[in-house]
């Protein structure tokens, strides 16, 4: 499994634990963490935990299921960078009530989503670059 894909899954686990912890702290004492905590929690879990798990697993398995190599490793690398630059900015924006940070972070996160979507479309569609090396 490519190191980048393992990083996606590993970072997803970290986000999952972080998002859960924030929610628990909020439940115990809402004043302990400032800002829009429910929104931050929701997006940490969905964009950080769920989506990055999907990124890591899909980047590994969809090319194999599709029968073609990943269209672009570079796109996937940039997807990792953008996703992990965007979400922390969004979290900082929500917790610090800075809408600009949320917007910039959201744009970066969306950039990662677009890169992933295009990469998957170009990988899975019929007539890609070539077959995965068959092993008999």
């Amino acid at each position: 499994m490519h190191k980048r894909n393992r990083l996606f899954v590993s970072i997803a686990l970290v986000y999952g634990l972080l998002g859960g912890l924030i929610a628990i702290v909020r439940l115990i004492d809402p004043s302990l963490i400032p800002g829009n905590v429910p929104r931050a929690h929701g997006h940490i879990m969905l964009l950080g935990f769920i989506l990055m798990t999907i990124y890591g697993i899909a980047l590994h398995v969809l090319p194999r299921f599709g029968g073609f190599p990943l269209y672009s490793e570079q796109m996937a690398d940039w997807q990792l960078y953008l996703a992990n630059a965007g979400l922390p900015l969004m979290i900082a924006g929500w917790l610090g009530w800075r809408d600009m940070l949320v917007m910039v972070g959201g744009a970066l996160t969306y950039g990662a989503i677009v890169l992933f979507g295009l990469n998957m479309i170009l990988t899975v569609r019929a007539g890609g670059r070539g077959r995965v090396i068959p092993v008999q």
């Binding site: 899954v9 686990l13 859960g20 929610a23 628990i24």
Partner: peptide, 21 residues
Amino acid sequence: GAVLTWLSLAIFAFRVWPVLW
């Protein structure tokens, strides 16, 4: 309930981490 669910996630991470690294 939230704490128990979080602990289950922590155990999952503990199980999966050596698979990845």
